[in-house]
Design a protein around this nucleic acid. Structure first.
Length: 254
DNA sequence: ATGGCTTAAAAATTAAGA
């Protein structure tokens, strides 16, 4: 069983990359973020032709999430319970015997911004929900773009990033609290090369220079963490023409 | 090295991303 998450930064623009990647990587389920696509325009036919069913929730310009799976995702839910102003950032569904939650955390813009306050509130609400949900659903995976680099080793140049969005102590504490609900960062269950990232700025040739952050995660409940055989970041799609700025993260479960 | 690149809106620029 192969699970993945990928912030595609516009499903419309990235559809050819996505279809090629599905054919090559053959994941059983994929969570997508930043589809930036209203539901009426979701490219369902192309995705079904590729052998996947999909559930999705999107809007124009910003945000938008989707879960693609070989079998029909069931028991679909949107948003964080008791957090009503969630703008198309979270969708949950049952795929086989797994409960999958696809999340796109707020960016936060800068620590001085109102959006930063919103980001921390969003994390609080997600964490409050996960406290009960992780117990209720032993086979739960929370996948997505979390817009936090949890540790200095997840940052290409920690000195340069100090004080910036994605690495501030409150963001890191919020992410740590989310993990403390019982979720494991699957990537860190294994030995990994140094300087592995999942996002690189479009500017200044950041990808070629290795200037990145690790902000996309597959978080696993204890039962799934035990069954996890590998976790990797697939940099392949980031090397293509007109790529997403994020790379897919892929885990294998026994 | 901290400039600039990509997207979507709309029709030249602006907002947002991270």
């Amino acid at each position: 069983m192969k699970l993945a998450t990928w912030n595609v930064n516009s499903l419309k623009v990235r559809l050819p990359h996505l279809l090629d990647w599905l054919a090559a990587a053959r994941p059983d389920a994929v969570c997508l973020q930043e589809t930036k696509t209203e539901d009426a325009n979701f490219p369902l036919a192309a995705i079904e032709a590729a052998g996947y069913r999909a559930v999705f929730c999107g809007q124009k310009s910003y945000n938008g999430v989707a879960i693609l799976a070989r079998g029909q995702p069931a028991e679909v839910a949107h948003g964080i319970p008791d957090f009503p102003d969630d703008p198309k950032r979270l969708i949950a569904a049952t795929v086989g015997d797994l409960r999958l939650i696809c999340a796109y955390a707020p960016n936060g813009q800068s620590p001085e911004s109102d959006k930063y306050v919103y980001k921390l509130r969003w994390y609080e609400a997600l964490t409050r929900w996960m406290k009960s949900e992780v117990r209720k659903r032993p086979r739960l995976a929370l996948l997505g773009d979390f817009n936090v680099a949890p540790e200095d080793r997840d940052v290409h140049n920690p000195k340069r990033w100090e004080g910036h969005i994605h690495v501030t102590p409150p963001e890191r504490a919020a992410f740590r609290a989310l993990l403390d609900t019982g979720l494991a960062d699957s990537f860190r269950l294994f030995e990994q090369p140094e300087k592995e990232f999942s996002w690189w700025d479009y500017r200044l040739n950041a990808f070629q220079r290795g200037w990145g952050l690790r902000i996309d995660f597959v978080l696993l409940s204890p039962e799934l963490a035990k069954a996890c055989k590998s976790a990797v970041i697939d940099k392949g799609p980031r090397t293509l023409e007109r790529p997403s700025d994020h790379a897919p993260v892929v885990v294998e479960l026994a």
